[in-house]
Simulated scan of single mutants.
Amino acid sequence: MAQWPNRRAEPPDDLGWTEDADPESVARKILLDQLSITARSRHELEERLARRNVPEDVAGRLLDRFEEVGLINDEAFARAWVDSRQRTRGLARTALAAELRRKGIADETARTVLAEVDPGDEEDAAGVLVRKKLRSMRGLDTQVATRRLVGMLARKGYSPGLAYAVVKRELGAPEWSGDDE
């Protein structure tokens, strides 16, 4: 089996295509291969088929059929994506919305899924991120630690108000021992 330098890289475009290959069979194989790895949005699959030079009419017909039978479901994909990224990366709704947009999820679907995110869970996730980062900040001045922690939360999509509140709460915890306390 051929090895590509980057495991996430796409295989060369000529794989699967022969002179007498049926474009629909090749496209179906591409879709099934992609979906066997992980769930994907319709938009991502459309892009992959286009990169592999699958005719648009064939791609559209197959994508529609895969949606009909439930193999492609953007709302379920978005829910799973939000759950995973919130759990593993601690991302806030703002960052999650941007990621869903890049994945080609419709704004209405993204709003529906993101509305299900509990603000309390979001605050808890921010607290976990801050506590984890605080372990490496022992001995830092409280102002420096505050600035770095709020910046980290901002990069993960948290609002300034929530970021400051969580950082203030965590820095006030007895486990924190900055230089100026």
Rank of each mutant, 00 (worst) to 15 (best):
R79N: 05
E67C: 15
S84G: 01
D74E: 08
S41Q: 06
V69M: 04
R28H: 10
R93F: 00
D83N: 10
L96Y: 02
D74S: 03
D74R: 02
T88D: 13
T94I: 12
Q86F: 04
V58F: 08
V69K: 10
Q34R: 15
R79C: 04
E56V: 02
P55S: 06
R87G: 06
R52Y: 03
R101M: 04
D33K: 14
L35M: 10
T94R: 15
E68T: 07
P23H: 09
R101H: 09
H43V: 03
H43R: 05
D33L: 13
V82A: 06
A39T: 09
E99A: 14
A97K: 11
E68H: 06
E56Y: 02
L45I: 09
R85N: 13
A27K: 00
R79G: 04
S84E: 08
I37H: 06
V26A: 11
T94F: 12
L100D: 01
A59T: 01
S84H: 05
L100R: 00
R87Y: 08
G90I: 09
G70Q: 08
R51Q: 09
L31P: 02
R79P: 01
E46L: 03
I37S: 06
G104M: 03
R65S: 08
A97N: 06
K103Q: 15
H43A: 13
E67M: 14
R65I: 00
L63V: 12
L71M: 14
R48D: 15
R89V: 05
R101L: 02
S41D: 09
R89M: 11
E46M: 06
R48C: 02
L91S: 05
R40V: 13
E99S: 11
G70D: 11
L35H: 12
E46G: 06
F77M: 02
R61P: 05
E68Y: 02
E46C: 02
G70E: 04
E24S: 12
V69F: 09
R85K: 10
R52L: 12
L71Q: 11
L96G: 01
E56M: 01
V82T: 04
E44D: 14
E47W: 07
A78S: 03
A92Y: 11
Q86K: 07
T94A: 15
K103N: 12
E24A: 15
R28D: 15
L96D: 00
A27C: 03
E56R: 12
R85Y: 11
K29Q: 11
L71C: 08
A59C: 01
V26F: 10
A97H: 07
A27S: 02
